[in-house]
Amino acid sequence: MTLRPPLRIPGITTLPPSAPGMRIGLFGGSFNPIHDGHLLVMEETMRRLELDALWVLVTPGNPLKNNSGLPPLAERVRAARARIRHPRVRVTGFEAEKGFAYTWQTIRFLTRTLPDRRFVWIMGADSLADFHRWERWRDIAAMVPIAVYVRPGAGRRALASRAAATLDHAQHDERTAPLLAYARPPAWIYLQGRQSTLSSSSIRNGAPPRQA
């Protein structure tokens, strides 16, 4: 199992508080930087899935990307906390303290450590399109329900992806979104809704914000 060197930063790598029975969304990423498109996804998925909380998991680095120019974890966590105003959203870099390099490690830890919470993994449609490239992606789908939120230009590619085809039998109707946290995995849903063309890379390149 691949692990990174553990990195403990008080107040940054702490796991958020929770209680048995809570429906908790897990929204992971580099957040370099966090932007209104991220906030939109958080707001919409919390509302549509009727979540009790949403944890923003700021990763030490994406295994599928070049992380050489990535700002320090603490800087990205603090920036995310400064932007988020929702009282039930918590930002953490706890994966760094555990030395986790992959999402499946994070989800396995949470579902084993907190088995009486109902976790839902949240991703954008662009991530679903590449989901088959994730380490042990089938295991991820077998551990938690997944909510996929529409992204401009990614819908067709996402729904025609290898992961979508493999998990076709496990797709739930969008109208059942409030029940997803209770579904037995594999289970996933594709959510249509408000969209933003913003991306972290476009912001770093100076692109103007637009919403759809």
Rank of each mutant, 00 (worst) to 15 (best):
V120A: 02
M46A: 03
W104M: 07
R83E: 12
P60T: 09
E97A: 15
A125K: 03
R88L: 14
D52K: 07
W134K: 04
R85D: 14
L40S: 01
G99I: 10
R151G: 01
I24A: 03
L51G: 02
R23T: 13
Y149A: 06
R47A: 15
R83A: 15
W55M: 05
P145S: 08
R23I: 12
Y102A: 04
L128M: 12
K98V: 09
P63Q: 07
R88P: 03
R151Q: 06
V120E: 01
Y102G: 03
E44W: 03
V91T: 13
G37R: 01
V144S: 00
R117W: 09
M143E: 08
W137A: 03
L64C: 10
D139C: 03
V150L: 06
R85M: 11
F131I: 04
F100I: 12
R88F: 11
F119Y: 09
A129V: 09
G99T: 12
L114I: 14
A82C: 10
L73W: 08
F27M: 07
K65P: 03
R117L: 14
R108H: 15
T106S: 13
G69Y: 05
P60D: 05
Y149V: 12
F31N: 02
P87Q: 12
E75N: 08
R112T: 15
I107M: 05
H35I: 08
I122C: 01
E50G: 09
T113Y: 10
K98S: 12
G25A: 10
R117S: 07
R133C: 07
R81G: 15
V91L: 05
V89H: 03
N62T: 07
D116P: 04
G61M: 02
H38G: 04
L39W: 06
E75S: 14
G29M: 08
L70M: 13
T45C: 07
A125P: 01
F100N: 05
